[in-house]
Design a protein around this nucleic acid. Structure first.
Length: 341
DNA sequence: TGGGTCCTGGGAATTCTTCG
DNA sequence: CGAAGAATTCCCAGGACCCA
């Protein structure tokens, strides 16, 4: 019922009193068609509410305007911004996103890629999962479609890869705290198997050593990405190590939780290190909400939206020229200084 | 019954043909 | 020669049919 009621190009042709090919030429703005015929076709389109069927057009032209994007975690603001950038870029070039999430699981990623190839996507952007990255690239190659990695951390492959400079981000944050007079700086959040965290801790440790400051394993705390756990960990850390005057927080939620933890030990968040009662706080992955707290949160921002746009540009370029050589883009971070450090 | 082959439908673009 | 119509084409799942 619904199928038969759908307006097709033949209906438009009938209504306008012209042939299907004429409708096609008018809609595609091709050929030499008289103004009167163009008007008739446009009126028919308007009257019938005709919407072009891309699936059919793609079938004919053997081309798809769908781009698959498999991100790791849809609730992660990092991916939200990346997705917005990617979507912007693709929509500007008449392509559409087809979204799925892998939850950081290799088998899920493979399954998503398989589904997308079956759907006939023209390209794939994916957030890599270490054990599955090579297989995904091989699958894309077999399907003769381009693929790019959009990642939170470096990918050890000769593939198109766009990601943030986590190492430099941590250097920037640590240097900022040191310049404010902090000498005992801890790192809170993330899990030990996170490559992003490893890169940040690398930058953090390098900077501490460069300034001759202590780098202690017991000052690096693993925590799940929730405020309650972060608050507990920070409370415990500051009680056990009262020398600590500044915290680097792996995620915004960790930074928010840390504020409560700091309050619980009778201290406050801020830039005044000389009194010794204020703890400096810097978080990674800036979000608009970070400006709402009191004091507002100093954050490290990565150009996530730009990453998405760049990934879109790379995919479109690779779709045009299949022999494009792989390029890697590591985008520099920026310090957004607010009230917490 | 199972396996193999051929045909069809789905919608629109493109190419070829016809007409005035 | 410009405009419009007719025929063909794209891919492939799934159905129809045939044969052993």
């Amino acid at each position: 019922m619904a199928k038969s009621s759908k307006v097709k190009i033949t209906d438009v042709a009938d209504y306008a009193g012209v042939s299907v090919s004429t409708v096609s030429l008018v809609l595609g703005n091709k050929g030499r068609i008289s103004k009167a015929t163009i008007d008739k076709v446009n009126q028919a389109v308007e009257a019938l509410g005709y919407v072009r069927n891309n699936a059919a057009a793609n079938l004919r032209s053997n081309y798809s305007n769908l781009i698959g994007w498999i991100l790791a975690d849809i609730t992660d603001p990092f991916y939200t911004e990346v997705t917005a950038g990617l979507s912007d870029e693709l929509e500007q070039h008449d392509h559409m996103l087809f979204l799925a999430q892998s939850n950081h699981q290799a088998d899920k990623l493979i399954q998503c890629v398989q589904s997308m190839i079956q759907q006939g996507v023209a390209g794939i952007a994916f957030s890599p999962v270490r054990e599955a990255t090579n297989q995904v690239l091989e699958m894309a190659k077999q399907a003769n479609i381009p693929a790019v990695c959009l990642a939170r951390s470096a990918v050890n492959n000769e593939v198109d890869y766009i990601g943030p400079d986590n190492h430099q981000a941590a250097i920037l944050a640590t240097q900022h705290l040191i310049q404010q007079g902090h000498r005992h700086i801890a790192y809170i959040g993330g899990s030990s198997d996170s490559l992003t965290r490893a890169e940040r801790i690398g930058g953090y440790g390098t900077t501490l050593m460069q300034y001759g400051l202590p780098f202690k394993n017991e000052w690096i705390i693993e925590a799940q990405n929730n405020q309650c756990q972060a608050a507990d960990h920070v409370q415990q850390l500051l009680t056990q190590h009262p020398k600590i005057t500044a915290l680097l927080c792996h995620r915004p939620a960790i930074a928010l939780g840390a504020m409560y933890g700091i309050q619980r030990v009778g201290k406050s968040v801020g830039k005044d290190n000389y009194i010794g009662q204020q703890i400096g706080l810097i978080g990674f992955d800036d979000t608009p909400e970070a400006a709402l707290t009191q004091p507002s949160l100093t954050m490290i921002s990565s150009p996530t939206r730009q990453m998405g746009q760049l990934a879109g540009q790379r995919l479109l370029a690779k779709m045009k020229a299949h022999n494009e050589t792989a390029q890697q883009f590591i985008l520099p971070p920026q310090l957004i200084e607010r009230g917490s450090a």
